[in-house]
């Protein structure tokens, strides 16, 4: 166990060394990730600092990696530096600002795999800490994180635009599938499906529910991060209706009179 983990840490460290890592990033998260390991009785104390450092690097690398998935944050509206601060350009000029999120590269997929491994270790350790009589209750909720991942993906991508036809419109017009838009649902759907299949397979084959649960969650996370259309591709080729923010003109008049 120790040797395997050691190899994993070394591999992790070498892989992530190329990525920028600042010590202040996610210090607390690193602690949280390392915490479950303290409860493993056969785990050497020596490995804890190594594990902790690796956790911080992983999280920092994921922070960089995350940007390509989360994509459109407030920075989209901020483009230029005129008075030393970034200026907003409002809508619809913000659509001119180039979405710089990269495509999901093999390097990103590797990072996602590392994070998924981390999540696997974390959930597996946590579940094993729970008293046996409570496990059955907890295991009923294995799908909660899986659906959370899927919904988060959906929420992130919907920051750009919405479906060209509403659900009711689809039903009434019998246009049930819009390929150019519905491709955004592929990754979440596949993630939920894979999570479910992994859980059922592993639990029935091994009988270890904690293993099934952890594998299900980590597999689902890996798929949601690594598959489907990238944010950049979606922003430029997705067949969505662009969001139009509520006009601030009327809102302004409600709260203050022109000076």
């Amino acid at each position: 166990m120790k040797n395997t983990l050691m190899k994993y840490f070394i591999w992790l460290f070498i892989t992530l060394a190329a990525h920028e890592a600042t010590p202040q990033d996610f210090f607390a998260t690193g602690i949280v990730l390392a915490m479950p390991l303290l409860f493993i009785p056969y785990f050497s104390w020596v490995i804890i600092p190594v594990f902790f450092i690796c956790a911080m690097i992983t999280i920092h690398a994921q922070k960089q990696n995350w940007k390509l998935w989360v994509g459109l944050d407030g920075d989209l509206h901020k483009t230029t530096k005129i008075t030393g601060k970034k200026e907003q350009v409002g809508w619809p000029f913000c659509t001119i600002v180039e979405v710089t999120n990269e495509e999901i590269s093999s390097n990103n997929k590797l990072l996602n795999l590392l994070l998924s491994c981390w999540v696997f270790i974390w959930t597996f350790t946590l579940i094993r800490l729970i008293p046996v009589e409570e496990i059955t209750q907890i295991l009923k909720f294995w799908y909660v994180p899986v659906f959370f991942f899927a919904l988060s993906h959906r929420a992130a991508y919907s920051t750009i635009g919405t479906a060209p036809i509403s659900l009711l419109g689809r039903l009434k017009s019998r246009r049930f599938i819009i390929p150019g838009y519905d491709k955004v649902y592929l990754a979440p759907a596949f993630s939920i499906l894979a999570g479910g299949i992994v859980y059922l397979l592993v639990s029935s084959l091994s009988g270890i529910h904690a293993l099934a649960e952890s594998l299900s969650i980590s597999t689902s996370l890996y798929i949601i991060l690594s598959t489907g259309t990238s944010m950049r591709e979606w922003a430029y080729t997705g067949q969505y209706q662009a969001h139009r923010p509520a006009s601030p003109l009327s809102a302004t008049n409600k709260i203050s009179l022109p000076r």
Binding site: T80, Q88, G90, P92, F93, R244, P245
Partner: peptide, 25 residues
């Protein structure tokens, strides 16, 4: 360049800052 009927302006900015930002993009 598209001018919507109700443009979404960045009201906290001055007119000059806004025009500069748009020109720069």
């Amino acid at each position: 360049a598209y001018l919507p009927d109700h443009p979404w302006l960045t009201l906290a900015r001055t007119g000059r800052e806004y025009l500069m930002a748009v020109g720069q993009i």
